Amino acid sequence: MIIGIGTDLCVVSRYKAMVERRPGIEERLLTEAERGLSVESRAARFAAKEALAKALGSPGGMRWLDCEVVKSADGAPRFAAYGSVAARIAALEIGRIHLSLSHDGGYVTAMVVCES
């Protein structure tokens, strides 16, 4: 059964401008491993986390650094969740989270489906 869905669209140039305008913001949004990626991939991780928050009902108290976009053995993106995000996933009895990312023409999009 689907528990929640979330989508997000991020304009890479706007993400880059935000990072330049607000030094230190990426340290609050992205894990160390995520910060080492290209700007397009960092924007995609930001969009993925936004989409996940929407799929989880956007509750307060979740920390950005409590989830990370990682690659599964076959190269597909997936979430690793810790702390506040893992607690929300457990509270909703979510058994599987699907994540799809796409980059094209200066845009990145993320789609998340949470199911029990």
Rank of each mutant, 00 (worst) to 15 (best):
S84D: 07
A80F: 07
L52W: 05
G61Y: 04
Y107C: 10
E34W: 04
E93C: 09
L52N: 02
V69R: 00
K49M: 04
G106N: 08
D66I: 08
A76D: 11
L9H: 12
R14I: 07
V85D: 03
P77H: 06
E115Y: 09
S72Q: 12
R28T: 11
V70H: 05
G4K: 09
E27F: 00
G106Y: 04
M62V: 14
P23K: 02
E68R: 12
G24Q: 06
Y107H: 14
I5E: 12
S13R: 11
G61T: 01
A17S: 15
F46N: 00
G105P: 00
F46Y: 07
R45L: 02
L30K: 02
K49C: 05
V70F: 06
E40Y: 02
A43I: 03
V112D: 06
T31C: 10
G24Y: 02
E68K: 13
G4L: 05
P77E: 01
L52I: 08
R21E: 14
R21F: 10
A17L: 12
G83F: 11
K16Y: 08
P23L: 04
L65N: 05
L29C: 11
E20Y: 09
R96C: 13
C10H: 06
F46I: 00
A55K: 00
A33W: 03
E20P: 05
Y15D: 08
L30W: 00
S116H: 08
A90I: 02
R35D: 00
E32C: 15
V108A: 08
A91Y: 07
R42K: 03
S58F: 10
V19D: 00
I25W: 01
Y107T: 13
A48Q: 00
V12E: 08
V108Y: 03
M1W: 10
A55S: 13
E68I: 11
D74E: 15
Y82N: 15
C10E: 13
L52E: 06
K54V: 07
K49E: 08
G6S: 11
Y107E: 08
C114T: 06
M62Y: 04
E50Y: 03
V112Y: 05
A47H: 02
Y107L: 15
K16G: 12
R42Q: 03
S72M: 11
R78S: 09
C67F: 01
D104K: 15
T7N: 15
R22K: 14
S116R: 13
M18F: 14
L92F: 06
A76Y: 09
A87I: 06
I3W: 08
L37K: 15
K54Y: 05
A17G: 11
V69A: 08
V113Y: 04
A43V: 03
A86S: 11
S13F: 09
K71L: 11
H103C: 09
I25N: 00
Y15S: 03
S100A: 14
D74H: 13
V11L: 14
S102Q: 12
L101F: 08
V12H: 02
A17D: 12
G24H: 07
